Amino acid sequence: MNKPLLIVENLKTHFPVKKSFFKQKKQFVKAVDGLNFYVNRGETLGIVGESGCGKSTMGRSILRLIEPTEGRITFKGEEITSLNERDLRKMRGEMQIVFQDPFASLNPKMTVGAILGEAIQTHQIGQGSRERAKKVQELLVNVGLSPSYIDRYPHEFSGGQRQRIGIARAIAVNPSLIIADEPVSALDVSVQAQILNLFQDLKESLGLTYIFIAHDLSVVKHVSDRIGVMYLGRIVELSNKKGLFQNPLHPYTQALMSAVPSLDPDVKKERIILTGDVPSPSNPPSGCTFHTRCPFKQSICEMVVPREINVAEGRYVSCHKYDDEFEESFV
């Protein structure tokens, strides 16, 4: 059996909170607090969750754009969390990111040709300026833009076109893995489908692997093979797409699914309304971090952190309800 392209083990990214005069104890924002998952070659792993759950921090931590506090990241069989800056720069050609805001991620003072050419030159792709200019034109065609746009600036494009340029920059260095961080959330609904289809086309033609981060379940369902549901820095459920949408297991996942409107008027869904607000990641609840909002909580949930339980082939859930050791508590 082929090894996964990416393996993430116990990934944590904590940010220190500036101490005030009255708070002498050092505090941390636990943006990512113990993630475990893998990504196979050629698949799309969707990551979904509410704003502030740590999705974007997770993506940047994997690429070491943000340095993880703890954990192990293995890419193509090589452990990258301890790589020095020079070796990491070489590895970055294999891992790229598409950012949420296509305007903020592009240098407004550079033309499209210069933006894409910079990526090509940095990773020493192509020989000479003529060959690199040809490569830039090919990239524009690959993402559905005219080669004549090469001398235009980012402000001359629409939001969807700018995101296509961001995607072109990501694929310019022939990566194996692309982390797409909410790539369509800043776009009009009419444009979102076009960009999602572009991601799918590039995946097939270039053999790409994606981690696709989003807060919209319909977007994740459209592009993903497997889906991880995040809550307060942790993945509470990880499943194939069909299993997650047909039979969500974790109470948080069930609440998310109940909020998705159905196109069939004959289908009646019971809406699960969660009480309270999402706790602060600087002071997360003890035990299961979801217990403050969970309609099924028991006393064990307040005291013990649930382990990741393999309930079926490739399907995991972190909930005491499915743990044989504590299942009597839920009878």
Results as ranks from 00 to 15, higher is better:
L11I: 01
G113N: 00
F75I: 09
I7C: 10
T57P: 12
L65R: 06
D264L: 08
Q163G: 09
G52S: 09
I66S: 08
S146R: 11
R60C: 08
I115K: 03
E313V: 06
S282M: 08
D188H: 12
L116N: 00
Q24N: 11
L208T: 13
G93P: 01
M58D: 01
M95R: 03
F15H: 01
D225F: 06
E308S: 14
N84K: 13
V48S: 14
R162E: 11
R89N: 02
A114Y: 00
S129Y: 06
I213D: 11
I47Y: 05
K268N: 12
T209W: 14
V173C: 04
I213M: 07
R60Q: 02
H291D: 05
K269T: 14
S148F: 10
F199W: 09
A31H: 01
V8S: 05
G160M: 14
Q96L: 08
S299R: 08
K242C: 11
I7N: 04
Q96F: 02
Q124G: 06
R315F: 02
L65I: 10
H320L: 15
I300A: 11
R64N: 12
H250Y: 03
L63Q: 04
L217P: 12
H123D: 12
E138F: 09
K242W: 02
G113L: 05
P261S: 07
F99S: 15
L145Q: 03
M230E: 10
E67L: 04
E79I: 06
T44P: 12
H291L: 12
S185T: 09
E182T: 08
I273N: 10
S218Y: 11
I47M: 05
S146P: 01
S146V: 09
N40P: 01
L263K: 00
D201Y: 09
G117M: 03
M1L: 09
E94N: 15
N142Q: 15
K18A: 15
V260L: 09
T111K: 05
I120T: 14
E79H: 06
E308G: 13
S329G: 01
G126R: 08
E270V: 12
V143H: 03
G233N: 05
T81P: 11
L83C: 15
G113C: 05
D216R: 13
C288S: 10
S224Y: 03
F103E: 14
G93C: 11
S185L: 12
P284E: 13
F245Y: 14
P261F: 08
P4C: 04
V317F: 05
A255E: 11
K25N: 11
G34C: 00
L217E: 09
G49P: 03
F37G: 13
G71K: 09
H222A: 15
P285N: 10
D181H: 10
A312E: 14
C294N: 01
T122P: 02
S105W: 03
I195K: 05
A119G: 12
L238N: 04
A31I: 03
H14T: 04
